[in-house]
Simulated scan of single mutants.
Amino acid sequence: MRKLFICLLLFVFFISGTLQKKGKRTIKAQMNCSKAVPQPRTFKGDPVSWIKYTLNGTQAPISTHSHSALQSLSNITIEYLRGPLSTRVIPIFYMLVVAVGIPANIAILCLLVTKVRKVSSAILYCSLAVSDLLLLISLFFKAHYHLHGNHWVLGEPACRVVSACFYGNLYCSALTLACISVKRYMAVVYPFTYKSLPKRTFTAWVSVAVWGVFGAAIIPELLVEQSYWLPELNRTTCHDVLPLDYSSHIFLLYYNLGLTVFSLLMPLVVTVVCFARIIRELSRSHYDWAMYIKASSLVFGIFVVCFLPAGVLHFLHYLQLFVNGAESLYVYFNLAVCLCCLHACLDPFLFILMSKSAGSKLYVMTFKGKTLSISL
């Protein structure tokens, strides 16, 4: 793990040096004009400061539009908002995830309510299913937005709520999966401690803490304006383009970066460590541990496939913004977020695997030659 951590640091420094070299001229130009200012995680635009804006040869009064206006869009922003990637590929993927994920998670909730064997496990899986459902509902509105040419027609309050639920539940799901990994890690590596813990109380408080992180993640998104009219494209975007010089949005940069590190990257590290220790401990056992390995492997796979690309690209996007002000990685980040949403379809299979292993027990040898049975 120490070697892996050193390699990760070297990789980040390498990327930082590469971006620094590419953006050297850009940074000098910015320093000559004005002091460098941090930018939001999305595409950026400048607030329109004049009364009328020329559109298709005619002047459209800004004051008659219900949303604030942004201008000076980059070519990357325009291509993304007009292109088939954001108007066809991403929304179709979202709708497929919604079509599979909503029935699956509703079925899991029904099973949890009617057939509860272990309350502590049921609390975690119920929390995960509710989080997935909120994410899937927000995906439905985001698909509607993309299919309409990235034009938001549901108003500013709805945009704030959808953006908040979308990102907040990504963090909530990642933390819940990490908690499931820690629970299984404790049962396998420290069985005596796990056996003596008040698991229901601990699990309930952990779930409350996770949803507290969800609340902390959505509050800034609810307080800050998210939808803006783009006169250059004659459409209103939701969260995709934000102003550069608004102090509230500058605050979001640091806030979202902290959430990325503590709610995506740290749960990933925790899951990797737990997975490695579980494999190591179970490989020493003479009993059947295949089902536990499959369940732990699925949690690990969900993190690697779904959360790792989004977390790394989100971090590198911020790094690129700081170094040379470029925003090209936001396109790839949106693609990674599509993979991230896929976990809402995979989590029900995790519950099924856990349920299959619930009837059997893990046996751990004690120092006196006796065995201790642990139900996960």
Rank of each mutant, 00 (worst) to 15 (best):
R2S: 06
F11Q: 03
F14N: 06
T18W: 10
L19N: 02
K22R: 08
K24Q: 12
R25E: 15
T26M: 07
I27C: 04
K35E: 06
R41N: 10
K44F: 02
G45M: 02
V48Q: 09
K52F: 13
P61T: 09
H65P: 01
H65G: 05
L70P: 04
L70E: 02
Q71E: 10
L73A: 04
S74L: 02
N75S: 13
I76L: 01
I78A: 07
I78M: 08
E79T: 08
G83L: 06
P84A: 03
L85I: 03
S86Y: 04
T87W: 00
V89L: 04
I90W: 00
I90Y: 00
P91W: 02
I92Y: 14
I92W: 12
L96R: 14
A99S: 15
A99N: 13
G101H: 06
I102D: 01
A104Q: 09
T114S: 08
T114R: 12
K115H: 15
V116R: 15
S121F: 01
A122G: 05
I123W: 01
I123F: 05
I123P: 00
Y125C: 05
D132N: 15
L134E: 04
L135I: 11
I137T: 13
A143F: 02
H144A: 07
H148F: 01
N150I: 00
H151C: 00
W152N: 01
G155F: 11
A158S: 11
R160I: 01
R160P: 02
S163D: 10
F166W: 07
F166E: 03
F166H: 09
G168A: 12
N169S: 11
N169R: 05
L170N: 07
Y171N: 13
C172F: 07
L175D: 04
T176H: 10
L177F: 03
V182Y: 03
K183T: 03
M186I: 03
Y190D: 06
F192H: 11
F192N: 09
F192L: 13
K199R: 14
T201I: 11
F202W: 06
F214S: 07
I218R: 12
I219R: 09
E221M: 14
T236G: 02
P243N: 11
P243W: 07
L244N: 10
D245S: 15
L257S: 10
T260I: 13
F262C: 15
M266C: 11
T271I: 08
F275R: 01
L282F: 05
M291F: 06
Y292I: 10
Y292R: 09
S296G: 09
C306A: 12
F307V: 08
P309L: 08
F315Y: 10
G325I: 08
Y332C: 00
A336D: 00
A336H: 02
V337D: 02
C338M: 09
C340H: 05
A344K: 09
I352Y: 11
I352L: 14
A358E: 13
M365D: 08
T366F: 00
F367D: 15
K368R: 12
G369K: 14
